[in-house]
């Protein structure tokens, strides 16, 4: 097992005072905490920093670690825990330590890992080796159309589980019910489908993180859906009845005469489902010219221009 130099991880000298250790940990924790740092490796880096702090902030553990570092850590070939190491008594931390780093575990055993200063545990479990399995979260892509009614999905995922003292990835397949009206970033809990519990502890839970799949036509804003509707200049000028798609089939939409680009039309009840009803569909008109203009078209446009005094840049003229 590779020896971990906790001083190096925190960027501290080995004679650093407790105050300095705390200050350094807080700075690094604020920077690396996975809840505020979206980078992929932040979680791993934070775990290392938290583990180092857990040891160095406790004078007894620190003394024990320093001894180990002095005699064992500097050996070529890395750290080898012989099992004869005498643990200091009195480090009285409660724990939920399914996430222990191997190195920490081999040195300090089950004597607690609080990941930071405050105690994050309520029960005195350390002598029973009983704790809940790890919760897991997976992203589940859901199409907008599938949110209009309850649907079922088969999901496959793998979670870490400890088998014979080794952490292994265990694959699981589940058929799950996706309720009607789910929104982006909603979570659904599947009780007991996370990592296996330790001792008599319950299994962890699996959280399904709903992610709405970007739609080729619709954007989502709250419970409303927005669609851009291309119309020709003459449809905009004269008005038209056009067929437009919605999430649940096609409808006729009346474009009023003299409509403009960017103008919005609200179609009630054609958005996403909510607990109390439905959102709306907002159609945004977009005037589109033909890709190519024929000679005949040019003549007509010219006639139109000659007969029309309209200047869209009137307000700039002064």
């Amino acid at each position: 097992m590779e020896f971990k130099d906790y001083y190096q991880i925190l960027g501290l000298k080995e004679d650093a005072e407790l105050k300095e250790i705390k200050r350094t940990y807080r700075k690094l924790a604020l920077k690396l905490h996975p809840d505020v740092n979206p980078e992929a490796d932040a979680s791993e880096k934070f775990k290392e920093v938290a583990e180092a702090y857990e040891v160095l902030k406790d004078p007894k553990r620190r003394a024990e670690y320093d001894e180990l570092r002095k005699y064992g850590g500097s050996r070529a070939g890395g750290f080898n825990d012989t099992g004869n190491w005498q643990h200091a008594e009195g480090a009285d931390h409660e724990h939920n330590n399914a996430d222990f780093a191997d190195f920490f575990h081999s040195v300090f055993g089950d004597r607690g890992f609080t990941q930071g200063g405050a105690q994050h545990s309520t029960g005195h479990r350390s002598h029973q080796h009983v704790y809940k399995g790890q919760d897991a979260e997976i992203e589940v892509p859901v199409f907008l159309e599938d949110t209009l009614a309850e649907s079922s999905k088969t999901i496959q995922f793998s979670i870490p589980a400890i088998e014979n003292g080794q952490v292994k990835q265990v694959s699981k397949t589940l058929k799950v019910k996706i309720p009607m009206g789910v929104s982006d970033n909603d979570r659904i809990r599947l009780k007991g489908q996370g990592g296996p519990g330790h001792g008599d502890g319950p299994n962890g839970d699996l959280y399904l993180h709903i992610r709405l799949v970007p739609h080729p036509l619709f954007d989502v804003q709250g419970h409303d859906v927005i669609i851009s509707i291309p119309i020709s200049p003459w449809e905009a000028a004269l008005g038209a009845s056009i067929t437009v798609p919605t999430l649940s089939g096609k409808i006729k939409l009346n474009v009023k005469p003299n409509s403009n680009s960017g103008q919005k039309m609200r179609v009630k009840g054609k958005g996403l489902k909510t607990k109390v009803g439905s959102g709306d569909m907002i159609a945004v008109l977009k005037i589109v010219l033909p890709a190519q203009i024929s000679e005949d078209d040019k003549v007509l446009w010219q006639q139109f221009k000659d007969k029309n005094a309209f200047n869209p840049r009137n307000q700039w003229s002064d």
Binding site: R26, A29, H33, A50, T114, Q115, G117, A118, H120, Y207
Partner: peptide
């Protein structure tokens, strides 16, 4: 609801781990 639970857990993690 689950959204509250997610934020609650996040908050507890921050409280414990950032001191």
């Amino acid at each position: 609801d689950m959204s509250s639970v997610v934020w609650l857990k996040k908050a507890v993690r921050l409280y414990c781990e950032l001191e």
